[in-house]
Design a protein around this nucleic acid. Structure first.
Lengths: 213, 213
DNA sequence: TAAAAAATTCATTGATCGTTGAATTTTATA
DNA sequence: TATAAAATTCAACGATCAATGAATTTTTTA
């Protein structure tokens, strides 16, 4: 039997996910992936075609799950709201809470995935194309809900507000340890609950300031 | 004389800055830097020791200028304020406005530098250490001013708010084109004035929501 | 202008890179 | 169980990588 029980294809994805998250696409070699996954070098190319195919497969695997979870959260917050529809806070919460649900538990796979997405999102080379590909259909649904909650908003304002949200979210899940050093331990980058509880009101206040009235 | 009038050392820094911004540290070869700068391969190692030394030199060069400009903006907003000290908006503005002053003009060197910083800030490998090294002494001065403007704030709240600001700022200056695609042209990632005018009130509203009262 | 120092070039080292064709083993099919 | 298909391994290709010691040119110093 194989070195461990899990399937080799999944082990490759897990290893690549962790390595890409820490070192980026160019900073990881196919050899290092194979070694970490305890698998022959040629196997990654066999399953995913080439290095870029492996990268895409890593991003796609959890994007599908995350998009479903987020969509369910949006639908639920809509049904729970009254006839006036959900508040800005409720919509932002539906966007962020699924991340916490996945990232809070000790599943380090999700943690690596979020670190990778954070890096991709801020990357000139990948940011525009890949984030659009994997997340924009869902984000557009959230934008629609926000437009209804903020009926007088200028569309450009709404998009910029979402962009700021995306940036704040991204950096928070990058887990760079920056806030730990800056705050000398007062704020901990590992404490996703603390981040989540503050991000929702912070972002909601920003949306309202720019898009209300 | 050399291929162009500018000094070779500066040409190397300019080329490395542009390339690192687009492709990251691992995505750039010393050979590509030399070729772009129109310089012999060995010259970069001679001037900067090794690839990592070149990377640090690129980051340091403009960090020193930016820190001075930001510090001056902070001092100015303090003197312009009355005895109660500057408002949250004024402090945030002093933090952001210098970026616009540098990035707005057609100096593509600064644009590349900001793209690079954005990538570094969200990188697990570099984010914690490098951002701390180059920016924390200055950021601490801004945090002090914010503490005075929000005297009842819990320190942890303040640090998280700054973290969200840092993320929003970072993504905006990464110029990934994401917002252009999501908004179908309604918002343009190149329009730094539009971003700046919205980021100040957005962030200030977030700070107040969490740290006031 | 002569000597010293700095800057630049040249040529090469050994290591690592992604990819691939062919051979082998394991699994699924009939 | 025989056969086809999928999965995995092996060995190697050519390309590119960062770094460096030695030689040469340019600039500075005295």
């Amino acid at each position: 039997m194989a070195p461990t029980k899990t399937k080799r294809k999944d082990r490759i994805l897990d290893a690549a996910e962790a390595l890409f998250a820490k070192h980026g696409f160019e900073g990881v070699s196919m050899r290092k992936v194979a070694e970490t996954a305890d698998v022959d070098l040629a196997l990654s190319s066999y399953h995913f075609g080439n290095k870029r195919g492996l990268f895409d497969a890593v991003l796609l695997r959890r994007a599908e799950v995350l998009n479903e979870t987020r969509l369910a959260a949006l639908e639920r917050c809509k049904t729970e709201a009254g006839e006036d529809g959900p508040t800005v806070e409720a919509i932002i919460n539906a966007f962020l809470e699924p991340l916490l649900a996945h990232g809070y538990q000790e599943d380090e796979g999700w943690r690596h995935y979020f670190e990778l997405v954070a890096q991709v999102n801020s990357s000139f080379e990948w940011g525009g194309q890949l984030m659009t590909k994997y997340f924009d259909p869902l984000v557009r649904k959230f934008m629609e809900a926000l437009k209804e909650a903020l009926p007088n908003a200028d569309p450009a304002d709404l998009y910029w507000c979402y962009h700021f949200l995306s940036g704040a979210l991204t950096l928070t899940f990058a887990h760079t340890g920056r806030i730990d050093q800056l705050s000398e331990g007062v704020a901990k980058s590992e404490d996703m609950v603390a981040a989540y509880e503050r991000m929702v009101p912070f972002v909601a206040a920003g949306f309202k300031r720019l898009c209300e009235k």
